[in-house]
């Protein structure tokens, strides 16, 4: 039994219009997404802005209502849970993209990290402080930080505070929504290394949402590529990077800037090839409505959205 299973998840947002403000249409932000992940693994969700990767993550944790579909966590159906059954939610936490806006500027670090503890666990003041200090140590911040405010920290340190808050309740699944894209490269490496360390230490499972394929490749075991709310390809890291099948995946992989200056010309050439192929065969890979087809397995781990005929 998979640790987390998402079956045919749909999240549609109504578009209101007309004089009565009736629903005239829907935006299909997530339109039939299925995947499952195993305990202790890292699953990457990749796509351009607007592809629905963040909405998928938010639907799993319950920040967006699922229109249809089923999300099973550890055997429990957690689709659109009511407040009363919040217990499972404790085990799923989120790290947000922007460490500058995801921490309340008016609260001290102590209050920020203790907030989930206060919600779920009845602790005395001393116990609470002890727990927060433990967490701070775990994420590599000094104990004086406890009385400081978010603006007194750098971006990387703030992201660590966000991580400390996320792991305060000893969750089992963490959804990390572009946790490093707002950070500088040197700090990015610190946070990525650190996320890998705590994954090992605490046995965490990650869903890693991102668009930087270098980071995704570094962090993830399995990857799903999204385009306009649907999957175009899913597979292990090797499937996706060494053997991309869908034209959209190829285009994404080709767009990554190579760090080696000597490869410049080859890369431009390759990119133009892929771009040409993309334009020519767009109709073969996408349906009349511009959406991807259903996924077909081409190996045990590798699924590609190909048209019915073949």
């Amino acid at each position: 039994m998979a640790f987390l299973e998402v079956e045919d998840l749909k999240v549609h947002f109504p578009v209101k219009g007309g004089i009565f403000g009736r629903t005239v249409d829907h935006i299909r932000a997530v339109d039939g997404v299925s995947f499952s992940l195993e305990k202790g693994k890292t699953y990457g969700l990749v796509g351009e802005s607007g592809s629905g990767k963040t909405t998928t993550g938010r639907a799993i944790i319950g920040l967006n209502r699922a229109t249809a579909g089923k999300i099973t966590y550890n055997g429990h159906d957690i689709t659109n849970l009511k407040k009363a059954d919040l217990d499972v939610r404790k085990e799923i936490q989120m790290i947000f993209q922007d460490p500058y806006s995801s921490l309340n500027p008016k609260k001290r670090v102590l209050d920020i990290i203790a907030e989930p503890l206060r919600n779920y666990e009845k602790l005395s003041k001393q116990e609470e402080k002890k727990r927060v200090l433990e967490l701070l140590e775990l994420v590599g911040l000094s104990s004086e930080s406890i009385t400081k405010y978010p603006h007194q920290f750098s971006g990387g340190q703030r992201q660590r505070i966000g991580v400390a808050r996320a792991i305060a309740l000893k969750p089992k699944l963490i959804i990390a929504d572009e946790p490093v894209s707002a950070l500088d490269v040197s700090v990015q490496a610190q946070v990525l290394n650190f996320m890998e360390d705590i994954q090992e230490a605490l046995g965490l499972t990650y869903i890693f949402i991102g668009h930087d394929l270098g980071v995704i490749r570094h962090m993830c075991d399995d990857i799903g590529i999204m385009y306009k709310g649907r999957y175009v390809e899913e597979g292990t890291v090797d499937d996706i990077f060494d053997n991309p099948q869908h034209i959209y995946t190829k285009r994404l992989v080709a767009a990554i800037p190579d760090i080696n200056p000597e490869n410049r010309r080859e890369q431009i050439y390759y990119r133009q090839e892929v771009q040409k192929e993309y334009e020519q065969s767009y109709d073969d890979y996408f349906g009349d409505d511009g959406l991807a087809y259903g996924l077909k397995p081409i190996s045990e781990t590798h699924l590609v959205a190909l048209p019915e005929k073949g």
Binding site: S154, G156, Q157, V185, S186, V187, Q188, A189, Q190, L192, N193, E196, D212, L213, G214, V215, R217, H218, M219, V237, F241, I256, D258, I259
Partner: peptide, 24 residues
Amino acid sequence: WGLLGSMPTLDSDEEELFAIPGSP
């Protein structure tokens, strides 16, 4: 060295990234 080492690239698979400790 630190900047070059801290970039996850498509070739750097499982190894730990070379992070620059501390902050500016």
